[in-house]
């Protein structure tokens, strides 16, 4: 079956992932979010195999009428803060519930970047993306499983903002036109002053700078590659169950960014990180008593 790309189609992906007709936009628990704010950020609740989940996605067709650099799925100031509000609304909705009952958050990832404008810098785009990431980590700390599903573009700062703080990250395979990178290889070639052929040859043995799902898989940057979009529902549900199981076993740290660090060593793409951590810990162990 030929893969139908979902790039730029966040809303279509929501329909493919959630139980039919269950998506309620801008409503999470008792919170109703401002529909006019950050129109390109699509947030709300729905059901996945009957379980209530929060969904956070982007609609690449909508422009922000107030911030001209925000279009095509770019996450600007309003969008990032709205996404953060959706996370806090999810936390508030399940306040007092035991960790195993905290609703999962499903991040549908398709964004080319954060708002690259002067007004954004004057007011602090760094705060907006930072605020959303801190909210996601807090949700994880409280027991909410966070699973990201890359359906299109997971690019640099946008991927850090919306995706990389998840417990688990899944991606559609490259046949779906998914893009995961900091910069395309052509830009890296220009900056590192190497020709693109050399970089392509190097990337066969070293996944550390090349663009694409397969390289991020080797680095432990994504947990799983999904070959058929029809399987997204099953895969997301399965990972949610696994995250609950890890959390209740006191193994929360094995998910999320640091868990993916360990995965990168296991898959052989990011071995040095693990070595450095071990070496520095040994070094500190020799002097730790002085500080106790």
């Amino acid at each position: 079956m030929a893969a139908t790309s979902l790039v730029g189609k966040g809303r279509a992906a929501i329909s493919l992932i959630l139980d039919e007709g269950t998506f309620e936009e801008n409503r999470i628990g008792g919170t109703v979010l401002d529909a006019g704010l950050g129109p390109g950020a699509v947030v709300g609740s729905g059901r996945l195999n009957g379980r209530v989940v929060t969904v956070i996605a982007n609609d690449a067709k909508l422009r922000n009428p107030r911030f001209p650099v925000v279009y095509a799925g770019i996450i600007g100031l309003e969008e990032a803060y709205k996404m953060a509000e959706a996370v806090y609304a999810s936390i508030a909705a399940d306040d007092g519930l035991p960790p195993e009952k905290k609703r999962p958050l499903v991040l549908i990832v398709d964004s080319p970047g954060n708002g690259p404008g002067k007004i954004e810098e004057i007011f602090g785009m760094n705060k907006a993306t930072g605020a959303y990431q801190l909210a996601l980590i807090e949700a994880r700390q409280k027991g909410h499983p966070v699973v990201a599903m890359i359906i299109g573009r997971a690019i640099s700062g946008a991927f850090l903002c919306h995706g990389l703080q998840a417990d688990r990250i899944l991606t559609l395979s490259k046949e779906y036109g998914t893009m995961i990178h900091v910069m395309p290889l052509s830009s890296i070639a220009r900056i590192t002053k190497r020709d693109i052929e050399t970089l392509e040859t190097l990337s066969k043995t070293n996944p550390v700078f090349a663009s694409g799902a397969d390289y991020f898989y080797k680095l432990g940057g994504v947990e799983e590659i999904i070959e058929d979009s029809a399987n997204m529902r099953e895969a997301i549900s399965r990972h949610i169950d696994e995250v609950y199981a890890f959390n209740s076993a006191g193994r929360r740290e094995e998910n999320g960014p640091r868990g993916r660090g360990a995965l990168g060593a296991k898959r052989g793409g990011r071995k040095k990180r693990q070595q450095v951590l071990a070496l520095m810990e040994q070094e500190f162990a020799l002097i730790e008593d002085e500080y106790l």
């Binding site: 980590i137 807090e138 703080q165 991020f216």
Partner: peptide, 23 residues
């Protein structure tokens, strides 16, 4: 920010630091 010569690893390192700041 990210060192482009090893961009993917640099990106993933940023995410770890955010998690640890919250921790």
């Amino acid at each position: 920010g990210v060192r482009l010569h090893e961009a993917n690893a640099g990106l993933l390192a940023h995410a770890e630091q955010m998690e640890l700041i919250q921790e």
